[in-house]
Simulated assay, not measured.
Amino acid sequence: MQESIQKHCDNIQKLSDRLEQLGGVPDTVVHNNEWLYMLQEETRHSLSIEGYFATEQELKLILSGKKTGPEILNYFRIAQSMYDLGLQYHQEQDLRLDLATIRHIHSELFRELTQDRGQFRQGRITILGARVKPPEFDVEEHVRAFVQVTRHLLEQEPLLLALARSHALFESIHPFRDGNGRTGRIILNYLAVSKGLPPLIIKGTEQEARDTYYHALESADVGFHDGFPVPSKQSILQALDLGNWEPLVELFAQALTPQLHTLLALAVEAKEPLMPLSDLSGLLDVKVSTLRKWVERDQLVTLKRNGKHFSHPLLVMSTSAPKHAPDRLDE
């Protein structure tokens, strides 16, 4: 594995492990304000990738029923439902993924929009601007192989890399006539939440961000540029090995890190107050300038409020940090 990929995977795993130590993803995700904001932002950016643009204010109007926007409303509702389900599976240390789940996601995305919702395509499809060549026949069998491969990846590979490979595979298969991007990103985040992570917010409101995402996918799906292998786990894994995974893994790390930082800070704050860096500096006997460098290097997790950073000894991620902090919060 490339050193840069390993570094991103290790960093995300370290944050995820610390979140689990502090209680994990909140179990009230449907009513948690910070989680709700993440879900709204994920909805807004994911739909922007598909060309459905909405400002934060417009999104709130659509979700409150004061403005029409069925594509956006459908996405938010099924994402909210699936991520909550993913959290329940995580609490049970379980993970469920099958064709019915995938069809259900697509069906809800296109509720009241089309009659063939939830139905896999028949025949050839071309992805505009992409080099990948999705399978023309046996689409359902390729989706079954996707499920099998995804389970294997999540068991055998670092979580961040497994999510990247699974997502690129789904988008390469492109099993529906429309809505593959939206369906794929909801599956991606459902899997992430099922494994104890918050949803990835892949930026999409700006053209540069969308291009970065598309180019990362194109680097990853090289093994499908000249045609699609037979729908078997081994042949698909071999094709995935041909991809360059560094751009997509890096993008996913950037899409996850802010949400993990927020949940970590809130998990600590639920039991003890956060403090400004000036107070943390005195407690740890470290200069404020050093703490700011830690923040820049993701070695210190902070919550930014009114332009100021707040943190806690338990949010120090740097291995070189002084050992002034307790290993855990008092129960």
Rank of each mutant, 00 (worst) to 15 (best):
residue 75 Y to E: 03
residue 76 F to A: 10
residue 76 F to C: 01
residue 76 F to E: 01
residue 78 I to W: 01
residue 78 I to P: 00
residue 78 I to Y: 01
residue 79 A to M: 14
residue 81 S to F: 14
residue 81 S to R: 11
residue 83 Y to A: 08
residue 84 D to R: 14
residue 85 L to I: 12
residue 85 L to D: 09
residue 86 G to E: 10
residue 86 G to L: 07
residue 89 Y to A: 11
residue 90 H to L: 04
residue 92 E to I: 09
residue 94 D to A: 13
residue 95 L to K: 11
residue 96 R to I: 15
residue 98 D to N: 14
residue 98 D to W: 15
residue 101 T to R: 11
residue 104 H to T: 15
residue 105 I to E: 13
residue 106 H to F: 13
residue 109 L to G: 04
residue 109 L to R: 07
residue 110 F to I: 09
residue 110 F to T: 00
residue 112 E to D: 14
residue 112 E to W: 13
residue 114 T to Y: 04
residue 115 Q to E: 14
residue 116 D to V: 03
residue 116 D to A: 08
residue 119 Q to Y: 06
residue 119 Q to W: 03
residue 119 Q to M: 13
residue 120 F to C: 01
residue 121 R to F: 06
residue 121 R to Y: 13
residue 122 Q to V: 14
residue 125 I to R: 07
residue 126 T to K: 09
residue 126 T to R: 11
residue 126 T to I: 11
residue 127 I to Q: 03
residue 128 L to H: 12
residue 130 A to Y: 01
residue 131 R to D: 06
residue 131 R to A: 07
residue 134 P to T: 07
residue 135 P to C: 04
residue 136 E to M: 05
residue 136 E to S: 07
residue 136 E to F: 03
residue 137 F to Y: 09
residue 137 F to W: 11
residue 140 E to Q: 10
residue 141 E to F: 08
residue 141 E to Y: 06
residue 141 E to G: 03
residue 145 A to R: 03
residue 145 A to W: 09
residue 146 F to Q: 00
residue 148 Q to T: 13
residue 148 Q to Y: 05
residue 149 V to N: 05
residue 150 T to C: 05
residue 150 T to H: 03
residue 152 H to S: 08
residue 153 L to A: 04
residue 154 L to P: 02
residue 157 E to N: 10
residue 157 E to G: 07
residue 158 P to M: 12
residue 158 P to H: 08
residue 161 L to Y: 13
residue 162 A to F: 05
residue 163 L to P: 01
residue 163 L to R: 02
residue 164 A to Q: 07
residue 164 A to Y: 08
residue 165 R to D: 04
residue 166 S to A: 15
residue 167 H to D: 05
residue 168 A to P: 04
residue 169 L to W: 03
residue 169 L to I: 01
residue 171 E to N: 08
residue 171 E to V: 12
residue 172 S to C: 09
residue 174 H to P: 08
residue 175 P to V: 08
residue 177 R to H: 12
residue 178 D to Q: 08
residue 180 N to E: 03
residue 180 N to C: 10
residue 180 N to V: 00
residue 180 N to A: 06
residue 181 G to W: 05
residue 181 G to P: 00
residue 182 R to A: 08
residue 182 R to F: 10
residue 182 R to D: 00
residue 183 T to D: 09
residue 184 G to F: 15
residue 185 R to S: 10
residue 187 I to Q: 01
residue 187 I to S: 01
residue 189 N to I: 02
residue 189 N to A: 12
residue 190 Y to Q: 07
residue 191 L to C: 11
residue 193 V to R: 08
residue 194 S to V: 12
residue 194 S to Q: 13
residue 195 K to W: 08
residue 196 G to Y: 15
residue 196 G to C: 15
residue 200 L to Y: 15
residue 201 I to V: 15
residue 201 I to G: 06
